[in-house]
Amino acid sequence: MPDKFTKENYQSICDGLAAADPDLAAIIRAHSYPPFWWRPNTFETLVHIILEQQVSLASALSALKKLKERLQELTPARLLLLTGEEMRACYVSRQKSGYIKYLAEALLSGQLRLAEMEELPDEQVRAKLVALKGIGNWTADVYLMFVLQHPDIFPIGDLAAVNALKKIKNLPATVTREQIMAITMQWQPYRTIAAMLLWHYYLSAPKNKIQ
């Protein structure tokens, strides 16, 4: 089974990162520890992550709530009964409706088995997810971090995490993806928790200081 971080060791890992990196230590001093962000390993969670792609967290949550109100229980079989018009009434775009229905079909057919994902290493989980239409590396990263609690993931495609890193490290606008990934290597084997500290900073600090 892959290594995982837990609610019990989360703050001690934060402390270890802070001891090695003054910029992460400054986040904890200013804003305390980040919440222990966690989501269950369910179809609903993956739908939620897909809805979060390239929109605000509030917008995604609103769409998820609408789907749950309409279906009572958000399951693959029930979701597939919705028409495109009904999905749009739940604030789900035509493109994301297609992604979510493809996911539902993959789960019902056995192409994807969520329980099995808990026993697989990072790259096998990623490969199974990105094989599905509408799921890319960002969605896979969030699933690995929030659902499976894999400890060493840095979501390079997440603008909030990257912008927070640029801010705390005073990086120039010209910094490359490769340079950013090189910086994150110092946080191994706990890049997930470092990213959560960055998200915590992004959500806690005034927005005009992070752009």
Rank of each mutant, 00 (worst) to 15 (best):
M1I: 08
D3A: 14
K4N: 14
F5S: 00
F5C: 02
F5E: 02
T6E: 00
K7D: 12
Q11H: 15
Q11E: 14
G16A: 07
L17Y: 09
A19W: 03
A20V: 01
A20T: 08
A25R: 12
A26T: 04
A26D: 11
A30T: 10
A30F: 07
A30M: 11
H31S: 01
H31R: 03
S32R: 13
P34E: 03
P34H: 08
W37L: 12
W38G: 02
R39A: 13
R39H: 14
T42G: 06
H48N: 14
H48E: 13
I50L: 11
L51W: 03
E52C: 13
E52S: 14
Q53R: 12
V55P: 08
S56E: 08
S56I: 07
L57A: 15
L57Q: 12
A58M: 06
S59I: 01
A60R: 11
L64F: 11
E69N: 12
R70K: 15
R70A: 11
Q72W: 00
A77E: 15
R78F: 07
R78H: 12
R78Q: 13
L79Q: 01
L79E: 00
L80W: 02
L80A: 00
L80S: 03
T83E: 06
G84H: 10
M87P: 02
R88F: 08
A89W: 05
C90S: 10
Y91Q: 14
R94D: 05
R94I: 10
Y99G: 03
I100K: 09
I100T: 05
I100D: 03
K101W: 10
Y102H: 15
E105D: 08
L107F: 09
S109W: 03
S109H: 02
G110I: 09
G110C: 02
R113Y: 01
L114H: 02
A115Y: 01
A115L: 06
E119L: 05
L120R: 13
E123D: 12
Q124Y: 01
V125L: 06
K128T: 08
L129I: 05
A131N: 08
G134F: 03
G134I: 01
G134A: 05
G136Q: 12
A140K: 03
A140H: 09
M145F: 15
Q149V: 00
I153G: 01
F154G: 04
P155D: 02
I156S: 13
L159I: 13
L165D: 12
K167T: 12
L171H: 04
T176M: 09
T176V: 09
T176R: 11
I180L: 08
M181F: 07
I183D: 10
T184E: 04
W187R: 01
Q188M: 05
P189H: 03
I193Y: 03
M196V: 08
L197F: 06
L197V: 03
Y201T: 09
S204I: 06
S204C: 11
N208T: 15
Q211S: 12
